[in-house]
């Protein structure tokens, strides 16, 4: 299975990662290699085996529904690039 330039551009746009024109071919090759490895694994017969969603064969632990977190807004906003009136500020999002 091979990944083309268009695929790389689409994936990088979706992931919000910039891939320069020079890098595209190289990234396409790398991604293709990953898919090839999966294709190889696909060849293994897994009939009758329940798919796992997690490599650990364990179940989720649960937390009591009790408030354990306090307000540390001032601390967190000190390291934010921009904050005002308790809000984190980001470049305007046009809807």
């Amino acid at each position: 299975m091979s990944i083309g330039k268009d695929d790389v551009n689409k994936i990088s746009r979706l992931a919000a990662i910039s891939v320069s024109e020079q890098e595209v071919d190289q990234v396409a090759d790398k991604l293709s290699n990953i898919l090839d490895l999966f294709a190889q694994m696909q060849a293994v017969n897994t009939d009758g085996i329940e798919p796992m969603s997690h490599p650990l064969d364990q179940v989720q632990r649960l937390r009591e529904d009790v408030i354990t977190e306090n307000n540390h807004r001032d601390k967190y906003q000190k390291i934010a690039p921009s904050a005002e009136g308790g809000m984190y500020l980001v470049p305007q999002v046009i809807e």
């Binding site: 921009s82 005002e84 009136g85 308790g86 809000m87 984190y88 500020l89 980001v90 470049p91 305007q92 999002v93 809807e95």
Partner: peptide, 13 residues
């Protein structure tokens, strides 16, 4: 998202 409170910026709560 708060769109109208900060000129040119969006506030996030």
């Amino acid at each position: 998202s708060v769109h109208d409170a900060f000129p040119g910026q969006t506030g996030i709560d």
